[in-house]
């Protein structure tokens, strides 16, 4: 990893962690949503560092574009400004959630640690992660999964339209 990449990684990590904390802990839903948009864009930066240009592009367009607009739209439509403060979550939630999160973190750390003495992290081809590479894989090995996910999108769209009808 070159020097510039390290600097970029540190900056991106700081931004992503800070904005994620804001998303979770801020009281105003609108500010929380805007912090989420910031978080998504900084994760797109991570994708760029990890040779996933196509997915970085998708992240900005789909997540920071479409999904964030949807979330902000719903928040402003509902206008939950005079909502009473959220009450404390249950005992099981406050105990179990940090434990599970810690477990996931330990598992990730172990996976990274085990791989640390493996072969050097070099990408074999120059077009790793480009649209051509991902697209070829997508339409050959994962063709049926791709069709299934398109079916899922259609089902989700029909479901959303049905739920948004005036009389349920």
């Amino acid at each position: 990893m070159g020097g510039l990449e390290t600097v970029g990684f540190i900056i991106l990590t700081t931004l992503a962690l800070a904005s994620a904390v804001v998303v979770v802990f801020h009281r105003s839903p609108v500010i929380s949503a805007l912090a989420l948009a910031f978080n998504l864009v900084s994760i797109a930066g991570f994708y760029l560092l990890l040779n996933a240009q196509f997915l970085a592009l998708l992240q900005v367009i789909v997540y920071a574009g479409a999904i964030m607009v949807l979330i902000l739209f719903v928040i402003m439509l509902l206008s939950i400004a005079n909502e009473p403060g959220l009450h404390r979550s249950g005992f099981l939630q406050t105990i179990l959630a940090p434990l599970i999160a810690l477990g996931c973190a330990v598992a990730m750390g172990l996976a990274v640690y085990r791989g640390a003495d493996g072969p050097a992290y070099v990408v074999s081809s120059t077009d790793f992660g480009t649209v051509r590479d991902v697209g070829t894989e997508l339409f050959s090995t994962f063709f049926y999964a791709f069709e299934a996910i398109s079916l899922l999108l259609v089902v989700a769209m029909v479901g959303a339209v049905l739920l948004a009808k005036r009389r349920l």
């Binding site: 996933a52 998708l58 997540y63 999904i67 991902v134 997508l138 999964a145 739920l163």
Partner: peptide, 18 residues
């Protein structure tokens, strides 16, 4: 891995909409 991430992204869009 990138393909799976792509699928998760699609799934997230569907989940957010519904």
């Amino acid at each position: 891995g990138q393909i799976y991430a792509f699928f998760i992204m699609t799934l997230a869009a569907a989940e957010a909409a519904v």
